[in-house]
């Protein structure tokens, strides 16, 4: 099973829940953990992976052979990202805007362009207890986080019973890249107007991708009942609710997962794990209660 933990709003507790849920599932199964929040990766602070090996992630960008280029401007005309300009017969490249589509190299009438690789980030793999762990890091100043997320998922270990993916916040391309292809997506929210507003957007994404969706309400004791009403209206199952806890906040601040720091929370995560597994095995119709 591929399980994504996502949310529209940031800071709702995705990493806290993904980490402890993975630890609970790993009691009886083989689990791989992918931290796909490559702009702000934090799961390693809790899982403390060992033996990390790192690989660079690069993309293909064009380079101009000035001997062959006659400054015709075809490349600049066809670049959809304004990554190329031709000024006074000279090609100017803005590689940070390039998406690596390869169009300029393919279509240059003088074959004056070649592609070279440019490093945009790294992926690190290791193990955390019995779990396999990997995360990625987008170099600061780079923009194409979906590329690193794609790389993380493409080479995800397939022999595990469960792959838990900690997704980035939001509902645009990085989040879509992280959750697409998953069997189940848990959306973490909080019972506030912000939480609800961003949950609605995230549900639109998971539904359009045809992913079974469940909701976890974090800090459930702080807010009102509108988010619950919304879930009821939409037929979205609420799989767990966690209250605010100062003790938990303190444990988390020092990198201690809820699973280890608060013994009382273990059975809640075990129950959540069972709910998720049950959801995966159900057919889609019965999931939408």
């Amino acid at each position: 099973m591929k399980l994504a933990v996502a949310s529209g709003k940031g800071g709702t507790g995705k990493t806290m829940i993904a980490v402890s849920l993975a630890l609970s599932l790993a009691q009886k199964r083989s689990v791989a953990f992918i931290d796909a929040d490559v702009e702000a990766p934090n799961a390693h602070l809790f899982l403390k992976p060992q033996g990390l090996g790192s690989e660079r992630v690069s993309m293909r960008v064009p380079e101009v052979d000035s001997q062959l280029c006659n400054g015709c401007g075809t490349c600049a005309d066809l670049c959809a990202y304004n990554a190329l300009a031709v000024i006074k017969g000279q090609v100017l490249l803005f590689t940070e805007l390039c998406h690596g589509c390869g169009g300029c190299t393919l279509l240059c009438p003088h074959s004056a362009m070649v592609e070279v690789s440019r490093v945009i980030g790294v992926i690190e793999r290791g193990s955390a207890g019995t779990m396999e762990f990997c995360h990625g890091r987008l170099n600061v100043g780079e923009v194409l986080s979906p590329l690193i997320i794609n790389e993380l998922k493409t080479h995800a270990p397939s022999r595990h019973a469960v792959v838990v993916i900690d997704a980035p916040p939001g509902t645009s391309c990085p989040m879509v890249e992280a959750v697409s292809g998953c069997d189940v997506c848990l959306l973490v929210t909080e019972p506030t107007p912000f939480g609800q507003h961003d949950l609605e957007a995230a549900v639109e994404v998971t539904r359009s991708l045809g992913i079974k969706t469940g909701v976890v309400v974090n800090r459930c004791d702080q807010g009102d009942d509108r988010v619950y009403q919304y879930c009821r209206r939409e037929g979205l199952p609420i799989l767990a609710q966690f209250p605010f806890s100062r003790r938990l906040a303190q444990a988390l601040s020092g990198g201690i997962p809820a699973w280890e720091g608060l013994k009382g929370w273990r059975h809640a995560f075990t129950a959540l794990g069972e709910q998720v597994l049950k959801m995966e095995s159900e057919d889609t119709a019965s999931c939408n209660y």
């Binding site: 702009e39 987008l138 600061v140 780079e142 980035p168 916040p169 645009s172 988390l252 601040s253 990198g255």
Partner: peptide, 26 residues
Amino acid sequence: PGNGCPVMATLSGVKAALVVTEPSQS
């Protein structure tokens, strides 16, 4: 949130930013 494409677009031409953090390793 983050530090990718939308954050860079936000900061273009901006001289000062308030960075809000919380007291944790993350």
